[in-house]
Structure formats: C-alpha cells, structure tokens
Design a protein around this nucleic acid. Sequence first.
DNA 1: CCCTGATTCGC
DNA 2: GCGAATCAGG
Length: 200
Amino acid sequence: MSWTDERVETLKRMWSEGQSASAIAKELGGVTRNAVIGKVHRLGLSNRAEEPEAAPEPQPAPEPVAEKKPSRPTPAPQPAARPEPQPEPEAEEPEEVAAQPAFTPVPRRPIVPAGQPLPPQPSANEISPEALASVREVEKRARKLTLMELTERTCKWPIGDPATDKFWFCGLPSQSGKPYCEAHVGVAFQPMSSRRDRRR
DNA sequence: CCCTGATTCGC
DNA sequence: GCGAATCAGG
C-alpha cells in the first residue's frame, strides 16, 4: 500500500478527529500503526492541533511557565451508554468500609440537580435471576480497572460510586465486539421480550 | 498485559 | 519517503 492522496486525506481527517494511530491503520488497512505514526510525523501534524489555533501568547504573564500539558485535550474516550450500575448496593465483603463519621472531608454535591431528565434509563429492571446472579458473582472478580486501563476488549461496566474511591470498571474480558463481559452483556442488552410475566 | 504516541535508522 | 523496531509511558 502507498500513501495516495485519498489515504492521506483519511489519515489527516481521522488524526484530527482524535483517532488513535492503530484505529487509523485499521481503517486504512495494509498499514500498521507505526506506519501511520511515521506518516503523521512526516506530514508534520504530530501535534494534534488543527483548526483551533489559540493565541500563542508570546509574553503572557509574569509566571515563569510552570506546567504545560500539550498532550491531549481529552477527545472523549468512550461515552458508552451507561446502564444501571450496581443493581444491589447491599452485600458487603472483606472490604474496608471505613466509615468516617468524624467529619465530612468530602462535601459531595449531586451532579444531577434534582431528578429531572435521565429518561434513558428504561432497562435494568426486568432481568433474569440467572443474569443477576451471574453479574453479582462476576463483579466480585472484577479486575477493577481504571478508565485508562479499559480497552476494546475489556468490560466497561461501571461498578461503585463514581464520586468515591470505590469506583472502577469490571475489566473482565469483553465479548468480541461488545463493550461488556458475558455477564454484563446479559443485563445490558435485553432481548426486548422479557416483559411478559414478571414472576415474583 | 493491554494500549498509546515518539523516535530512530536501514531501506 | 517509508515503516519496523524500539523506546517511553498510561
């Protein structure tokens, strides 16, 4: 494969969109991510700054330039429709519950003002007992990965409260193509038919 | 271990 | 110019 104008164009577009080199290579086909990165550098667009040009600020302020993060402006990793985390807040295990009634070190504030929107939360209610049991079981074995540790093949099911330290992602091997592991796929994607009778 | 981009250097 | 190998890092 060679770098035709069309392929270069695709490269430029995807790179400016914040796509990873491997993703671009995958899209183009016939090249590796190294080839893509090499080309990116040769094209002189290694710095993912395209249109948005901010003031270079020659002599900005008296500050002697302490920190600078030209890295990445967070191209939004994987939004991924968030399902229902924690079907059961109960059940504790050998986990440091560490209750700190002394004082309130973290004045948490509800991200969502007062229950307003959040209409897209229909699922995760009528789930088969087996699936639920499977989930609860698998979450004990969660790899507890951080956001950065997630990949295309790790389960992205959130566990715990994002506002606290007790938050992580399942991280178990995800189903090919799916964002979750087998157990979580089971509760995330309902056949849309389990509505008939909810035996209880 | 999975992944990311950066750099080098023989071709 | 190209990109595998390698490096440095999350």
